[in-house]
C-alpha cells in the first residue's frame, strides 16, 4: 500500500522538454505559475490554455498520465468550487433553500478551478520531465547567489538528493516493520482517528531509530569517501545551457509579457 506513493515521478521520454536544462524548466514553471495569477478574461484564459497544451504536447507525456496527478487535490478542488459558487455576492442566478448562485460566483468558481488545475498540471510537466537529480542540481545552481547570504545551498541540495535516494528504502522498511507488528497482533486499521494515530507509535519509533542509524552509517561512508562540503567539489554532470535553453527563456518571457499585455489592454 505504501509502495504506491511516488515522489518525483519522472516519466522517461525523449522530447525537447526533457532535454532542456533543469534551470530553464524551473524558471519557465515559475513564470507560468505567475501568469496563472495574472491572466484575466477569456483572452487570457485562451493564452494560458494554449501555452499548457503546447508544452504538454511537446513533452510527449501522455495526457491521461498527467491527469492522474490531479487526484490528490480533488478534495481541495471541490471545496474551492463550492465556496466560490455560494459565497460570492452578486445578483442571484439560481436560488434554492438558503443558497444562491450568482453569475459572478459561477465565473469565479470556474476560473479558480482552472487556475488550480493548470497550476498542478504546469508544475507536473516540470517534475515529469526532469529526474529528481537534475531537479536538485538545477535548484542548487539557481539558488547559488543565496550562498552570499550564508544560506548553505549545496548542503540543502545534498540533503534533498539523499532524501530522494532514501525514500524507497524507508518505505520498504516501514512495510517490513508494519508486517512484523501485524504478525504480533498490532492493529493499524480499526478504531477512530485518535486510536489510529496512537497505533502508529509502534511503527514510528522503530522507523526513526533505524533512520538515525542509517544516517549515522551514511555520514561515515560519505566522510570515508572524502566528502567535505561543497568547497572544491567538481561535478560528473555539470549543467550546461544549450541553444534550446536560450530559446525557451525567450519564449517564456514573451509569453509572460503577452499575458500581462492582454490583462492591461482588455
Amino acid at each position: 500500500m505504501l509502495r504506491d506513493i511516488t515522489i518525483g515521478q519522472y516519466y522517461p521520454a525523449d522530447s525537447v522538454i526533457h532535454r532542456l536544462d533543469p534551470r530553464t524548466k524551473l524558471m519557465a514553471a515559475m513564470l507560468y505559475i505567475l501568469s496563472l495569477f495574472i491572466f484575466r478574461g477569456w483572452a487570457g484564459f485562451a493564452a494560458v490554455t494554449l501555452a499548457l497544451v503546447l508544452v504538454i504536447a511537446l513533452s510527449k507525456v501522455p495526457f491521461a498520465y498527467m491527469v492522474r496527478g490531479l487526484k490528490p487535490i480533488a478534495v481541495i478542488l471541490v471545496i474551492t468550487i463550492l465556496f466560490n459558487l455560494f459565497l460570492t455576492p452578486g445578483v442571484p442566478l439560481v436560488e434554492f433553500w438558503k443558497l444562491s448562485i450568482s453569475w459572478q460566483g459561477l465565473k469565479n468558481a470556474g476560473f479558480m478551478t482552472v487556475r488550480l488545475i493548470y497550476l498542478i498540471l504546469g508544475s507536473s510537466v516540470l517534475t515529469l520531465t526532469t529526474t529528481p537529480n537534475q531537479l536538485t542540481d538545477g535548484m542548487e545552481q539557481s539558488l547559488k547567489p543565496l550562498n552570499r547570504l550564508h544560506i548553505p545551498v549545496h548542503e540543502i541540495s545534498m540533503m534533498m538528493s539523499i532524501a530522494l535516494r532514501f525514500i524507497p528504502i524507508l518505505i520498504e522498511e516501514t512495510d517490513k516493520i508494519m508486517k512484523a507488528q501485524l504478525a504480533r497482533g498490532a492493529d493499524f486499521e480499526s478504531g477512530n482517528l485518535i486510536k489510529k494515530a496512537k497505533s502508529m507509535v509502534p511503527l514510528l519509533v522503530p522507523l526513526f531509530i533505524s533512520a538515525f542509524r542509517r544516517a549515522n552509517d551514511l555520514a561515515m561512508a560519505m566522510e570515508a569517501r572524502c566528502y567535505h562540503g561543497g568547497e572544491g567539489r567538481t561535478k560528473m554532470k555539470p549543467l550546461r545551457y544549450k541553444k534550446a535553453d536560450g530559446a525557451a527563456y525567450l519564449l517564456s518571457a514573451a509569453y509572460l509579457a503577452g499575458v500581462i499585455a492582454l490583462r492591461i489592454i482588455l
Binding site: R165, R214, D217, A221, R225, C226, R233, M236, P238
Partner: peptide, 26 residues
C-alpha cells in the same frame, strides 16, 4: 550495509561521488 553507503540514486553518479569530492576534473 550496502544500502547505507550508496549516496546517489544512479549507479554511475554514486561511483563519481568520491572523485567529485577530491576535485577531479569532469
Amino acid at each position: 550495509n550496502p544500502d547505507n553507503q550508496i549516496i546517489a540514486s544512479v549507479v554511475e553518479e554514486d561511483v563519481a561521488f568520491g572523485p567529485e569530492n577530491i576535485g577531479v576534473p569532469t
